[in-house]
Design a protein around this nucleic acid. Sequence first.
DNA 1: TTAATATATGCGTATTTGTTAAAATGCCAC
DNA 2: GTGGCATTTTAACAAATACGCATATATTAA
Lengths: 119, 119
Amino acid sequence: MTANLDRCEIRSVDPEKVELAKKRLLDDEVYAGLAETFAALADSNRAKIIYSLIGQELCVCDIACVVGVSESAVSQHLRILRTLRLVKQRKEGRMMYYSLNDDHIQTLLGVCLEHVRHG
Amino acid sequence: MTANLDRCEIRSVDPEKVELAKKRLLDDEVYAGLAETFAALADSNRAKIIYSLIGQELCVCDIACVVGVSESAVSQHLRILRTLRLVKQRKEGRMMYYSLNDDHIQTLLGVCLEHVRHG
DNA sequence: TTAATATATGCGTATTTGTTAAAATGCCAC
DNA sequence: GTGGCATTTTAACAAATACGCATATATTAA
């Protein structure tokens, strides 16, 4: 929307701040990536899945059991989390064990949990 | 889905782990809150808004200018972020200045950014 | 009145989760 | 090996709903 930009340059209250902020901006793909990752966490069941995986690995079947949804649904949730590298998998026989991919995830969940609980 | 639960108790591979994980589970509202908060971050423009607010406060007009969307759209995004206490506002005359509510937000964005960039 | 922001409403689109069924994959008995 | 069973994954489909934005109107302050 170039119209807005034009209008904005006129209307901006503090052009210096605006210029500075614009320079600091990252590539658009980065925000898209951030949004995509946050979106993967923006589901109750997926949040619950991740929470269940803190400190232990679980197979699909047991995750379904803990969270209380069908195995198919769990598998599809896990695919989303896997695609964004939030969880990793380990195959053992016909079982697939899932665990958190790294500490980022636990931190994200922990910080957000803190925010949700106490302002 | 009680049907799944029944089936699950039979099918669970490691009942002890499952029991343990179930006990550790939080109230459902917590996961809903987590999901809601993450959902607020799960939008490119909102992520960009938050990123713009790191280290400085900006008025609605300037945010619109930086991010490149209409002021109305920005205002609506800000309402979402405000509702979830991700940003706070300060009124000065007829201007409304927004800033990050606390360090949680910056941490969330920072950790997620790290994850998006390097695995 | 005008400026700055907020809210209401509507629209078109897109996305979402979950179910069912089928398909891979691996194990085991025989 | 073959057949059968268990575990997980994928595909296709449905319904619902959620989303972001624009337009217009309302609020609040100068």
